[in-house]
């Protein structure tokens, strides 16, 4: 499947192998792996709780992948995003892209992440020593989205 939302960890190598398959046209595989940091805005984070909107989140990710496929010359795109409680250093999200040459794979991978950040319904809540707090959206993420026009 192109897009998955799951609580379980994922295996990057297995995901890449499944995406790449035996396609001899593929000359470039670009992956982005997002992981949990232990500090956000100066506060220690014990756990991150990832929430999504079942149904809409998958549709939004599929729309982003479809958009990437129409904009860039890529063969395959795969997005795996975790939800539920996540500890610092754990992987949150994987975007993997295959293409004939690196430029389109790099661009498509970044495009998917930039759009995911501003358009896919996920929300982070941090568990900190001072209590729980919802993470605020970043203006820099809107800027990253806007650069794609």
């Amino acid at each position: 499947m192109t897009v998955r939302v799951q609580t379980a960890p994922f295996d990057v190598e297995a995901e890449v192998a499944a995406l790449r398959g035996g396609d001899a046209r593929v000359g470039a595989v670009v992956t982005f792996l997002g992981t949990v940091r232990d500090i956000n805005d100066g506060t220690a984070v014990a756990t991150l709780e990832l929430e999504h909107y079942p149904g809409m989140t998958e549709k939004a990710l599929e729309a982003i992948v479809a958009e990437a496929q129409s904009r860039f010359d890529v063969y395959g795109v795969r997005v795996v995003h975790r939800v539920g409680p996540l500890a610092p250093t754990e992987p949150i999200v994987l975007v993997a892209v295959t293409s004939a040459h690196r430029a389109d794979a790099f661009d498509a991978c970044r495009f998917v992440m930039d759009f995911l950040k501003t358009r896919a319904p996920f929300w982070k809540k941090e568990r900190t020593p001072d209590g729980d707090r919802w993470v605020d959206a970043r203006v820099s993420d809107d800027d990253a989205d806007a650069r794609w026009g």
Binding site: H52, H81, V93, A120, V135
Partner: peptide, 10 residues
């Protein structure tokens, strides 16, 4: 109809 804050995934 869903109402939600700006998204913060990834």
């Amino acid at each position: 109809v869903a109402v939600f804050p700006p998204v913060t995934g990834g």
